[in-house]
Each structure stands twice: as structure tokens, then as C-alpha cells.
Design a binder for these strands. Sequence first.
RNA 1: GGUGGGUUGGCCGAGAGGCGAGGCAACGGACUGCAAAUCCGUGUACACGGGUUCAAAUCCCGUACCCACCUCCA
Length: 464
Amino acid sequence: MTFRLYDTVTREVRDFVPLEEGKAGLYVCGLTVQSEPHVGHVRSGVNFDVLQRWLRHLGYEVTFIRNITDIDDKILVKSAEQGRPWYNLAYAMHRELDKAYAALNVAPPTYEPAATGHVPEMIELITELIGKGHAYPAEDGSGDVYFDVRSWPSYGELTHQGVEDMEPATDADPRGKRDPRDFALWKGWKKETEPKTAAWPSPWGPGRPGWHIECSAMAGKYLGHAFDIHGGGVDLRFPHHENEQAQSRAAGRPFASYWMHNAWITTSGEKMSKSLGNSLTIPNVLEKYRGIELRYYLVAAHYRSHVEFSFEALDEAAKAFQRVEAFLERAGVSTGSTTGVAGELPEAFVTAMNDDLGTPAAVAVLFEAVREGNRADDPKPHAAQVLAMLDVLGLDPADPAWGGGGDDAKLTAAIDALVSGLLEQRAEARAAKDWARADAIRDQIKQAGIEVEDTPDGPKWTVS
RNA sequence: GGUGGGUUGGCCGAGAGGCGAGGCAACGGACUGCAAAUCCGUGUACACGGGUUCAAAUCCCGUACCCACCUCCA
């Protein structure tokens, strides 16, 4: 059975046929590192991480490039507001993003190129476009270079829009554009307002890259002029991806075969914009929920479905996932080094994943396996299947990526020593059928935040 | 004005012509000293109005409401 995915261009789910058999080239637009990452930002990271893992599972040799935009208008504005160099802000936020990805077990891509490191590649591409008559230096002496939308008849093909139907830019400043829809490939340095460090030499004078050009240049450099899949958030379809494709193809590069776009996460029906305050930043959410729980929440919804974020829903998701963990614990495989040597994936799971990464259906299969395992005399084979599924989804609790360092083990031992003393007293009370005292001890332990469960193997405690 | 998406039970969230995805919560039962966990069982949901069909949450027409993008937001 082949892997099928939804292509934004054809608007249908179609077979994935790579350009080169056995290999998959994937480019995903990463973030503009201008502020702390929030839940919405990280969704794309998790979604494409699942894609990457699934392609690898299918046996593809994956080259995964996810860029970092580390110079742009907003970075300049924000850093100025904060009174620090733009590169300091970008670098600090980049490190925050790395931390957020790590906390969610988002595997690093093959390479994470930054825009500022690829100015020569961009200049080369822009020069080529000017040479072919698809771009022009602004006539107002600003040092800007624009892509000439009118020179490229298929402009709009990605998002199925005609140039005539597009709303003319409302940002009143036409600068030196021939057509208001023309977009900047290169932005001339504005001496009066922009720091000198934000300008690079170019044939058109000092300046910095336009937003879209970086992705065309970097995708071309690391994946070749034609590659398999290009991904990003829905908002990037237009103008970003439309422009990437236009400028790449105008330069004679075929560019991506498939376009994938993940949907939004909103809060109270609204876009999770960066101005919303910081209650939804990853560091904040991780104070209340574990990374694996947040990841489960994100994976349990289909990547093309809009998700209305709420802490109530995240809470439910966390409980659901704990059910899986409790099963693994019971089956006695949760702490073993079973990662990677787990059982076979159920066919229904594979079918679900092959159908445009149908993670909701895949998760349903996961829970069915958990129930069967709970019912079975020997849960181990089911547990092995469960682990195999979790591994593909990046949700294996035993994965060292989740941390669980040595301090934890020490703490656990210390608590165990304290709790076991109390549990012995409770056992004595129970043996004497002194239920009141037994329950009082259990309540006492519970007040410390520790739940006691009686199992066939004796009482077990967990931090609730 | 253009383009696209959405409205599913108490809640989250799948599905895309005919067997009630899955999870959370609730209720009943089993197990338990009581719990917890687990298992078994219970719900007749698809925005509204028409239509097509033996059969519609799913297809068609219309209506309402919501959302996203339209030049630097994942």
C-alpha cells in the first residue's frame, strides 16, 4: 500500500511518488525567531516531525530541511523596542525554539539553515531573475529589488487565484513597484532607521533579503532545484509559498512536487497571535503539562484540522495518554529499553497513517490495542504493538528524549523509602481489618500528592 | 471583491452514501474491606430548510453563523 497525502495544489489526496526512488526531500518553513514560541508555532514542528518519522518508517531516506528566519522587519522592530541588537534577539529566540522542540521530542531536521547564512545564494538567484526579466531593481533608488508578477503568467497557480482578483495591497506604500502585487526580493538598507549590522553588500547596494527568497535559495541549495515535499502553516500559502514557487520556477527551477499545509490552533475562536500575551508559550504550558502530553494532544488531531485550544481539552488529552502509560507500566515494559525493538504495527494503524497521516484513526487503533492488552492474560504482545505505534508517533515514554534524568531516580528512591514505611503500617491495619486506620494512612499519603493503588502484586504508589 | 476551510452527542475529536472511530466525563454492573486501576454494558450526535436515493452526518440546491488568507503571521 502506498503513502498518500493531500496536496494543496491539486486539492486532493494523491499517491506519494518521490523524484528518486527510496528517497524523500522535505522542506518546511520554520519560524521567524522574534518571540517565545507558543503552542501554535510548535504544531507545525510536531506535524512535520510525524511526517518525517512516517517516511522513515516506510523506508525512505529522508532529507529534511527546516529553516530559521533570523532577519526580518519584525525582528528589527522588536529588538529596537527592547533595546538590544537584532541578532541577539533572534539568537535568543532561536534557542528558546530549540528547547521547545526538544521538550516535545521533535527530532532535529537534517539541517536547519538560517537566512542570514545564505545571502550569497539569494543574490545569485535574484541576479538570475533580473537576467531573465522577472525582477527589477526599484526605480526610486531605494535599493529594493522586486519580482515582476506580471512577467510570470502562472503567478497565483498555487493558491488558484488570478492576479486581477487579488486585493491591491493596502499598505499604501507602493515604493518603487511597477505593480502593487510585486514583492520584494531584496530590501535596500534604510540608513536612518536600520542598524548597519542588518545590511549585507549586494550588486544593488547594501540591504537585506526579502522574506520569500531565502526559502527558494535554501531549498535549492540543500534539496536541489526539484524536490518532493514543501510544508508549512496554512497562512503561508499566500503570499509566502506562492512567491517562493513563482520566483523559483521563473528561474527555471521546478521546485516542490507536493505542498502540505497544517491548520491553525486558535484560542477562543481567534488566531493565536503573538500579541496574545504569554500564557500559551511553550515554557508556560510545560509548567503544567509534560511535553509528551502536549505532543499527544497535538498528534491526536489531524494536521489539516483546525484545533480550538483549551486547557480543558489538553487536560483530557493528558488523562487519555496516562491511560496508555498506565497500561505500559502494568505490562512491565515501560522502563525497559524496548524502544526500536518493539512489535509490528497493526495493519489498521498503517492504513490510517498512509492515508494522509491519519493520526486520529491511528490513535484509535492505539487505544484498541491498549484495551485488548488490559483484557489479555499476557499483555506483552499488545504492549509491544503499542510501543511500536508510540514510537512512530514520537510518543514513546521510554524515549530518552523526554529526559527523566538521574535526579528523578534519586527522588523516587527517597520517596519510596518514606512511603513504604507508611504502606507497611497500612498493611498491618488492613490485616487487622482496621479499615478506618488503613484509609487514614492512605489519605495521609494522598495529601502529599501520592496515590496508592492496591494491585495483585501489592500496593503501588504514583505521584498524581 | 477574490480564494479556501468549518458548524458532529455533556465535552474533545474522527468519518465522508448503508455495520454507533477513539478519548474525557456520566450512569449501571463485575472485581475490591472500601477505593483506585481494569474489564463488561448504557447514549441513538451530525447548524437550518428543501431535494436526490431503497438508504444521506456523508451527494445536490438554498439559508444562517463562524474562521483563515489576499504582500513579509505556524
